[in-house]
Amino acid sequence: MYEPPVQRVIDELARLPGIGRKTAQRLAFHLLHVEAGDAVRLGQSIIDLRDQVRLCVRCFNVTAEEQCAICRDPRRDPTLVCVVERAQDIAVIERTQEFEGRYHVLGGSISPIEGIGPDQLRMKELVARVGNESITEVIAATNPTVEGDTTALYLARLLKPLGVTVSRLASGLPVGGDLDYADEITLGRALAGRREL
């Protein structure tokens, strides 16, 4: 145990994901020795994060406005929606610069073990968007896990009767990779999802 002001910081840091006791200790002592301005800026940025950031009313991306930058952008294709599990996934897809539609953040994937069913995700909100907006295709970009695949299947069941196309991100081979090094599952999925040339 350290003096309370030190111990408090260690305890708080250790609650963050991926940070153990030792790392928390190192960070706390680091903060003790940096210039005062640096520590204050860090503290203020965390406060601002909570004060100023909220969820986009349309897609539930994080934003400082009522709608996120992507939803506000008139050049975005309003007929195309990419469904992701978390807001962080949007940045990953944006980096490809291949996608010109909008997004919808579900907030996770279906996992009865963790008590997460469709009602715990933003499914109803998605159905409402399909009703209110000019959406024609929904791309399920959930993770290629048992839970992510199941969520994609559920989306298809839910949305197809509403007259929209539901597609799934293809699983495939890493570009520039060698067939020899592909694992059998990836290769199997790539085969199952093959395309005519």
Binding site: I110, P112, G117, P118, T150, L153, Y154, R157
Partner: peptide, 20 residues
């Protein structure tokens, strides 16, 4: 996962979820 769904909701299980 399927067993967790059945265990939690039993006869009240949402059928669309179960079918998926």
């Amino acid at each position: 996962q399927r067993n967790a769904l059945l265990r939690r909701d039993g006869p009240a299980t949402d059928l669309m979820s179960l079918e998926v």
